[in-house]
Structure formats: C-alpha cells, structure tokens
C-alpha cells in the first residue's frame, strides 16, 4: 500500500479577518453532532418512534369521546416532554464527559459562540420533533373518527400550539441549563429528573408552602399550559418559576462553561 506522506495542500487561509469560526457553520456542526453518535441518534429516534406508537395505543385504548386533537397532543407531546431536556443536557455535557471539548474549543476558541450554536441546534431539533408531535396527533385525530367513531374535535387554537411549544422549550432550556451547571451527563440527567419532583413534593406537603407553590415550582406553574387556561397572574408565576429553574442554574452554568478547563488525560 502506498500512502501519501502529507495530505494535498489547500488554498492558503488568510491570517487577517474575524476571529474563530462563523456562527452558521458552528450551528451546522452542532446539528450534525446531535445525530452522529449512537446515544444522540437513539434519543431522537426514540422520540420519533414513540410518537406514532402513542397514537396507535390511543386509537385502541382511549374512549371514543376522548379522541380529540387536544387529547392526542397531550399524549404525543409526552416523549418530547421527557426526552428533549436530555437532548439539551447531552449536547453540553458530552463535550466534558467525552472530553471532546478539547477539540471543539480549540477549533472554535470563542466558547460563548459555541454555546449559542449548541442552543440554536438543540432548539431547531426540538422544534422539529415538536412539529412531529402535532402532525402525529393530527393523523390520530383524523383516523379516530372512521376507526372508532371518535369525537374528532379539532378545537385547539393558536393558544394551544403556543402553550405546548412553550412548555417543551422551557424543558429543553432547563436541560441546557442543568447540563452547563453540572457538566457531567449522569449527574445532570439525574438531577434534572429528581430535583423538580422533590420540589413538587415539598411544596405539596410542607404546611404553609402550598399557597405560594406556583411561584416556585415549575411543574405546578406550567400545568396550566396543558389546560390552556393560563391567567395573567399565572403567567407571572410561570415567569418566576422559570427564572428559578432555568435562569438561576443557567447563569453560573454559562460562567462555568466559559471558564472551566476541559481536562485531558
């Protein structure tokens, strides 16, 4: 076998110009990273595969008068609700857990820009699977009438779409924040699933806290997004809980990503 000693030369690259790598290219790289490992592929494939399964189960098991578009969406968004945050966590933590950050941040030294590219890529992928939930729900509702004599109501409205997109993106942002804060996949995933539930239990059981629960507990304050009846007061409470569960961990998280060392060996 004859091998080249050195690769073919390329056009010389200019030494003058804006530092680092353009944002659009970083987003394409991060999008590719979302699907180029088995872990990330399984995660997205899992979401994509579960959604139609849920539609079939509903068509078989749910009472005909419950076969409405709103009900279908409630169920088809469930895999996204649980798995999108994991996508957010892994897109950040894998750079540390797998130490690929050594390469990522050497090729693109502006870590803030890389973080934004990660968030943008996760957002695009998130929106794609959210659309999948809406489409699968529509297919289910269209089949519900002919197959089961289902109710088939399409009433949902722009507010319905807004509510579901919002609750799913808050989850994704929370995943990103937890990932940045902890930088270790397992720790971030466990914390993401355990801590909010501990909060819910505490606020539900501790005397005197129940009244203020919606200001502090994200699960409770976003529950109105599923009943599509958020009041102005409710939006404020949701904002407060989002600040606590998304912004509060994200701020030290961003600082950590910008400053912490990606260890080698």
């Amino acid at each position: 076998m004859t091998t080249l000693t050195l690769p073919p030369a390329l056009e010389p690259a200019p030494l003058a110009g804006p530092a680092g790598v353009p944002f659009g290219r970083l987003v394409r790289v991060e999008l590719r990273k979302l699907v180029d490992t088995r872990a990330s592929r399984w995660l997205l494939a899992g979401i994509a595969a579960l959604t139609p399964v849920i539609v079939v189960v509903m068509l078989v098991a749910v009472k005909p008068h419950d076969l409405t578009y709103e009900k279908f969406v409630d169920f088809t968004q469930a895999p996204q609700k649980y798995l999108l945050p994991v996508l957010g966590i892994l897109t950040v933590t894998s750079e540390w857990s797998q130490r690929t950050g050594l390469v990522t941040f050497t090729l693109a030294p502006n870590r803030g820009r890389v973080l934004c590219a990660k968030a943008a890529a996760a957002l695009l992928a998130g929106l794609l699977v959210i659309v999948l939930a809406f489409v699968a729900a529509a297919a289910g509702n269209a089949l519900g009438g002919p197959l089961r004599g289902g109710d088939g109501s399409w009433s949902f409205g722009a507010g319905g779409f807004r509510d579901i997109v919002l609750v799913l993106l808050i989850g994704l942002a929370q995943g990103l924040a937890f990932g940045m804060l902890l930088l270790v996949s397992a720790a971030a995933i466990v914390t993401y699933f355990v801590l909010p539930n501990v909060s819910s239990v505490v606020f539900n059981t501790a005397p005197g806290l129940k009244a203020d629960e919606k200001w502090f507990d994200l699960n409770t304050s976003t529950s109105s997004l599923y009943s599509h009846d958020t009041t102005p007061h409710g939006w404020l409470q949701m904002l407060s809980a989002t600040l606590i569960w998304v912004v509060l961990p994200a701020v030290p998280g961003v600082l950590r990503v910008l400053r912490s060392e990606v260890k080698s060996g």
Binding site: T37, R38, S94, Q98, T100, L102, V103, V262, S264, G265
Partner: peptide, 10 residues
C-alpha cells in the same frame, strides 16, 4: 492535545 479525548460513539 489528547488522542483519547474523542467521543467513543463517533
């Protein structure tokens, strides 16, 4: 910097 710092799944 570190040949082992690669995503094991890639």
């Amino acid at each position: 910097l570190d040949a082992s710092a690669q995503h094991s799944g890639r």
